[in-house]
Amino acid sequence: MRIFPELHFGSRRSLRILERNVVIYRTQWLMLVSGFFEPLFYLLSLGIGLNHLVGSLSAGDRLVTYAMFVAPGMLATSAMNGAVIDALFNTFFKLKVAHTYDAVLATPLDVNDIALGEVWWALVRGSIYATSFLTCMIILGDAGSPWVLLCLPGAILTSFAFASVGLAACTWLRSWQDFDTVALIQLPIFLFSATFFPITLYPGWLQGLVRCSPLYQSAALLRGFSLGQIGPSSAVHIIYLVVMGLIGLVVASHRFRRILTP
């Protein structure tokens, strides 16, 4: 009896999807390299430019440089963008253009394995980027505490949450034109998530809305780790992102089943 087929996420075969993506990306190594340099450029430009303009600002109980404040926000943003772009573009291509998954479903793999495998991939990719970002961050002196190392699992959790939702979202896209809608959603999330400046600078009514944003949750979590300010709110952020990821995964798997095995 399989009343909830979506909840059967046990197959080791999902790792084959990860293996497939690694093989494919070896032919696109330039993309991987650009992923390494992107955060470095961000950190350098912010450190050099805005640090001088903005000076220091207070975060919790301490005064930090602007680069220290903004770096975890950039890490969260980079984890979000990486996960969403890969989940949307590449999965859309495999799902509706190249019919890669149709070939996969002629093998012992199941739709759940496909959805889960894509999530494994997002985690691997996310952890590679996050490691390079954190390394730059620490070398440039933008980390405010040894707890900064927790930013790595934090960024991976962010990748999980956004990749799962991205996978689910991509199943509703009909053509490449629909990707404009994605930008329309992603941009306000990027701009209104307290990644560039403290949430207290937003007007009161907007603060509530900002707190709902998944990117805010991630940025706040990572900032707490980076500055060594860990508290009950960290747990709330973690729960938010875990639940978001799980819902995304179940929805994605359900939608994959509808589309791929009509």
């Binding site: 019919h99 070939a103 002629a106 093998t107 012992p108």
Partner: peptide, 18 residues
């Protein structure tokens, strides 16, 4: 499904090569 598909070969209507 998985046990059966392990013993099947399928040539789909559309090419799905990488």
């Amino acid at each position: 499904g998985p046990e059966i598909r392990a013993r099947l070969g399928v040539v789909p209507q559309e090419d799905t090569l990488e």
